[in-house]
């Protein structure tokens, strides 16, 4: 069965979802990520979903679960690149992914993870994007 590749970049894991995922693939990614976080001791997980045309409740739940599990294992998850139409639809569907941190693109997401690593602890920020405050010039 197909697997979605997980790249390791320093203390972070990077996943780019590029296919229209069926449910088994999403479930496999959840498992693989959990294992890799535990095996590598990664402190941050970045999931790029900018290629995804939809996020339904199954994929949404997968993202939520990955965020919750990785937090328990000492890593923070940031989901980047969600398209406007996908975000609007997800909200209408009733999924707000409150436990998941988000960033506009991979660059911003990596900067966010970089700041978590500098701060040394990832759990004491008050807002999802608050950690983004110092990422240089950005634009």
């Amino acid at each position: 069965m197909d697997r979605i590749p997980i790249l390791k970049l320093g203390d972070a894991l990077l996943v780019t979802i590029q296919v229209d995922m069926h449910d088994r693939l999403a479930a496999a990614l959840e498992e693989d990520l959990t294992e890799r976080i535990a095996a590598t001791g990664a402190k941050g997980v970045l999931i790029d979903i900018s290629s995804l045309g939809i996020v339904d409740s199954f994929i949404g739940r997968m993202l939520d679960t990955v965020a919750a599990v990785s937090r328990m294992l000492g890593a923070d998850t940031v989901v980047v690149g969600m398209r406007p139409a996908v975000a609007i639809t997800l909200v209408e569907l009733g999924l707000e992914l409150k436990g998941v941190r988000t960033a506009l693109n991979v660059e911003r997401g990596m900067a966010l993870i970089g700041r978590w690593l500098e701060d040394g602890d990832g759990d004491e920020r008050d807002g999802p994007a608050a950690g983004d405050a110092n990422d240089g010039d950005g634009g």
Partner: peptide, 12 residues
């Protein structure tokens, strides 16, 4: 947006 909504509903 409408495309995304109907495709997501179809998926569910």
């Amino acid at each position: 947006v409408d495309q995304t909504k109907i495709v997501t509903a179809a998926s569910e």
